[in-house]
Each structure stands twice: as C-alpha cells, then as structure tokens.
Design a protein around this nucleic acid. Structure first.
Length: 411
RNA sequence: GGGGAAAUUCCCGAGUGGCCAAAGGGGGCAGACUGUAAAUCUGUUAGCAACGCUUUCGGUGGUUCGAAUCCACCUUUCCCCA
C-alpha cells in the first residue's frame, strides 16, 4: 500500500458517515489489500444517482489496491429491504430480478475493473435460495435478538405502519450474506449507504458470534440536498444511469441545476477531481458558482456516459442557453414529411414530444406563457406548426425556462 | 381466534345523500424577480371531440331521481384482547 490511505481520502471527500471501528479500519486499509463488499438490490433495471455515489466510493477503494465484491441481491430483492420504506414494497418476480441484475452488472463495469479477479461479482441468490429454513433459524436465527432488532432505527417507523415477518427477515439475510462472503472470500469489511447501518451491524455481529472474528462496517453519506431531500430524484422519477432511461443531456442538466449549497459536496463525492480544485470551485462567489456547476455536470456525465456524450451535452447546453443554435444531443422527436406538410397543432405537438402529458396540460402551459417555439412565445392555442416553421428540417420547442426539445422532419 | 377502527385525487388530509372533479397543506408545473441557484410573490394542478361530456374517492354488487357519502359481501391495513 502506498500513497495516501484511502480511508483519509474517503474521509476528506465526505463519504464516511459511520464506522464500527474507525481506527482499526483505517489501519487495516493502510497495511494490506482488503476484500470488502457492498450490496445492491436489483429492484429496477438501472442504477440511479444514489447508487453511483457508492460505486465511486468503490472505485476509490479499488484504486487504492483493495478488492471489491459487488454483491447483487438476487435473493434479498425477493424479500425487499424495509429500511426507509414507509410501505411494503411490491414483490418482484424472479425473472425481473435476474434481468435487473444483468443491467446492474453492466453499469458496475463503467468504473469497476473486474479483470484478473481485481473485483468480484457475486449474487446472494447463489446461497440464499437454497437455504433450509430450520437450519437457517437454528444456525443464524439464534444469534439475533428480536428485542434488539425492534429497537433498530430502521424498523421503528415500520412498527407504526406495519411490518411483515417477511421484511423483518431482511436483516438476517443481509447479515448472513456478510458471513457467507467472509467464508468464501475472507471478506471482513462491508460498506453501504448510511441507511444500511443496522443491516451492516447485523453482519459484523453475526461474524463475531459465529466465527469469533472481528468484522468491520462503514457507511457513506446519503446523497441529499442541503435541505435534506434525497438527490437523484426528479418529478419524472429517478435520475438513471441508463442512457435510454435518462438521456445524457438530461443527466447533464440535472447536475447543472444543483443548488449552490450542494455543488461542493457533489464535486467531492461524485467526481475524481482533486480536493484542492473541488474546494476552489465550491467557494466561487455569487454568479461564478455556475462555473463549478458546469464542471460538475461535465465530469459526472463524462464518467457515466463517456467524454463524447459529455461534450455533446455541454455543447447543446451552451448553444441553447447561450441563445440560438442547436445540437445533436438535445432530446429529439421525429415527425414525417407528411405530418409536417399537413401541419400539427401546437397542443398535439406538445403531447407528441412528451413535453406535456396531456392536452389539458399542454393548453395550461400555453395559457400560462410557458411555451416558446423558435424563440417566439406561443400565445394562440390553435397555432398550427407546419413545414414553413422548420429551418433545415428542424425546430426547437422550449417549455418553461430550461426544457428544450427538438423536432425534426424525418428524411 | 374475539372485539374495534380505517382505506379519498402525486403525498398528507377534509368531506357522512344533491351546491363534489371533491376544502386545506405539501409537492409538481408555469409566470414575475434572478445566475439554468436559493428565497419570495402570483397562477395552476383528472381527462376529452370542452360554455358540454366522460372517468375518479380499496373491490364487487345493491338501495335511490341522485352515492366518496347509505346497505351487503370481499380485499387490505391498523389498534385492543388472547
């Protein structure tokens, strides 16, 4: 191990929230290559910005010479983690979970190097699905105190709302995962989001009781705004890493729009820029802070979607917000020559481009002055857009202040 | 197993036979002010072939000229007792 201890790097960048044994963990990371694990439940077909923070942390660890195990929760996803959920999750089928796991796998590879066994991908379905119930509760269940579990923060809110036995078991499953990874790979460190704290403790306790070995746990800051809201979510849903679910342009825009107060934190947590630079950007005064946001958006988009997409998004942004011009990267809808020749009502156009979910909403937008076509505010509800409105077969519709959409006539 | 309570639009939550597409708040969207920020103020927030029509108050059926509101059954949840 050479260079700065990765523990200090993570700490400086603001990742670390809680640790089981701060000094021992730091020491361990400083002296040997440590095998550690982070679990991901594949409950959707793409990871989100929240997962991304964890992957970045994982990458920092790997770069420092440690060995990550990305544990896909093919088994635990069947149960559903009750942590932070106010209601019971809907159950996912085995098929969907497997599909999701495949999607997750590809996304890990963006930042984690799995070549030459430098990292391991596991799936807890491999051991959880074949567990024998009686054996499990005899061997594992004995080590868990229900009294203690009930006092865990993660169950408290659910005790008011109702918690099924199924979900109550989630903690045991995750604890068991850690034990299993210790046995298979000698893994003694589990990392995760701060909401995973009690689940992680379940694992470290279990290993100590069953194996008599000290295991460690550490949690990362959750990606929240300065107001305490979860980041990575928009009204339209989560910010996905999958470009078909959140286009690189929209992804870029999301980060371009973070609040002033959150820029520095995001730069530290979600990019690999040196901390000196992060601090410099974060302390830019007033309007200048926009520079920091541009860097943030560019860097994150580059990591997730590649430099080319990041550049395209950046150029599109400059063209649109700088006035005039357009770019390939703007979300685009194609219409046929016939449609263009015949003309399309502005209301239908808004629905067609998904800028408005319904015609009523489209009408409302226009009435409130929120629609601009080719730099002209739309005031008439019966405006018809036809081929004369297209320049070079293209036209730009702007919804509100910052949502741009391009319509192109297909060849 | 016994008893009680509840389910309302994106969320919370009012509404106990017509004045209900349903108060209020939150959130969202749009406008003004700005820096693609925050704060603040204003408007808006089921759909449609739109001065009217259609779907919506856990589900299914019923009573009624008329049901989110009454009745029956079902589903789910919570609370108390065991």
């Amino acid at each position: 191990m050479n260079g700065t201890n990765v523990f200090d790097i993570l700490k400086e960048r603001g990742f670390i929230q809680q640790t089981t044994h701060e000094e021992q963990i730091r020491e361990l990371l400083g002296k040997e290559s440590v095998t550690f694990y982070i679990g991901f439940d594949p409950t959707a077909d793409s990871m989100t910005a929240g997962h991304f923070l964890t992957i970045i942390a994982m990458a920092h660890m790997q770069r420092a010479g440690h060995k990550p195990i990305a544990l896909l929760g093919g088994g635990t996803a069947l149960i559903g983690d009750p942590t932070g959920k106010t209601d019971m999750r809907k159950m996912l089928t085995q098929e969907i979970i497997n599909h999701n796991a495949e999607c997750f796998k590809k996304q890990f590879e963006i930042l984690i190097d799995f070549d030459n066994h430098k990292a391991i991908m596991e799936n807890n379905a491999n051991w959880l699905l074949e567990l024998n119930y009686v054996n499990f509760i005899r061997d594992i269940g004995v080590h868990f105190s229900v009294n203690r579990m009930l006092t865990a923060e993660c169950f408290k809110s659910r005790l008011e709302k109702g918690l099924s036995f199924l979900e109550f078991n989630y903690m045991l499953m995750q604890g068991y995962d850690f034990l299993e990874l210790y046995k298979r790979y000698g893994c003694r460190l589990e990392l995760g989001g701060d909401d995973q704290w009690s689940n992680i403790l379940a694992g470290t306790d279990l290993i100590r009781r069953v194996e008599g070995v000290e295991a460690y746990g550490m949690t990362f800051t959750l990606l929240t705004t300065s107001e305490g809201k979860k980041m990575g979510k928009t009204e339209a849903g989560a910010v996905w890493l999958d470009p078909t679910k959140t286009t690189p342009y929209d992804f870029y825009q999301y980060w371009r729009n973070v609040a002033d107060a959150d820029v520095e934190k995001c730069l530290a947590l979600l990019t690999f820029l040196p901390m000196d630079e992060v601090r410099r950007l974060g302390s830019l005064p007033g309007e200048k802070i926009n520079e920091a946001k541009k860097v943030l958006a560019f860097e994150i988009t580059k990591i997730v979607h590649g430099e080319e997409e990041a550049l395209k998004s950046q150029q599109a942004t400059e063209a649109l917000f700088g006035g005039g011009g357009d770019s390939e990267a703007i979300p685009t809808t194609e219409i046929t020559k016939e449609q263009a020749a015949f003309g399309i009502n502005i209301i239908d156009m808004l629905v067609l481009t998904a800028l408005a979910p319904s015609k009523a909403e489209a009408r409302r937008l226009i009435t409130q002055g929120g629609v601009v076509v080719n730099d002209q505010k739309v005031t008439a509800l019966d405006l018809v857009i036809s081929d004369k409105d297209f320049a070079d077969s293209k036209l730009i519709i702007k919804k509100g202040k910052k949502t741009y959409h391009r319509v192109r006539i297909a060849e």
